[in-house]
Amino acid sequence: MKQNVKTKIEISDLKVHYGNKPALNGISFDVYENEILGIIGPAQSGKTTLLKVINRTLEFTADATVEGSVKLDGVDVSTIGDVYGLRRKIGMVLPLPVGLPLSIYDNVAFAPRTAGLRNKAELDEIVERCLQQAALWDEVKDRLNALGTKLSGGQQQRLTIARALSHQPEILCLDEFSIAVDPITTMRIEEVLKMLSTEAKMTIMLVTNLVQQAKRLANRTAFFLNGNLIEIDTTDVIFSENPANQITYDYVNGNFG
């Protein structure tokens, strides 16, 4: 299978330091087009940092230094001039729900608007589609003009997912999206993610603390520990009785972490 898939993101020898503190120690792996890649690992293992490097939001952290390269479709992201265009290609869902201080409608329409879309009918359609995909439409369709920050935590999290989908990204990065979402809604979103991967041909990077979630969704899974990539393989192998590293087995089975 690996031979005939296209590489979407190519990460080679990526090192990140916050001041003197290392966050990633030279990791290299590829993300294939149209796959769901699960990224698991305990806290402080560099998962979020990795996502921030890809969409270049790490630049706002003043003391962070990045070495090595991250290539998206063969182009090094650090050399891309149109960083806003790059970020529009990548949908990002942050671990804590951050409702922008706008109405629900404007929250979802924010990204298309910044990209220059002004047509009301098209915006309406995008907002409805994204909210439906994030399993939020039924709950908010009657109060789209209410303030997004007034929603409950789980609803706000789904709002951020709808927002991340609103600019039709090629890559969707989810950073522990289910942290404030109830199990039933989580299942509904997971169904949507599978659908996005198979039908919309989206590449999905799923950072998660729920090991079972990676097992349910991911085609391949990467295990991070203390800024090192311990192992990356198909999910079946990682969750089998004999992954390449004993420590992976221990983590996956809840023996530590």
Binding site: N55, F60, L94, V98, L100, P101, F110, R163
Partner: peptide, 26 residues
Amino acid sequence: ATPIRESAYALGASQWQVLSNQVVPL
């Protein structure tokens, strides 16, 4: 809060858009 800026930037907004739409109203 920094996450508000970050999530706005992650949606592809320019600095001016982040300032005028998010930061200044808050």
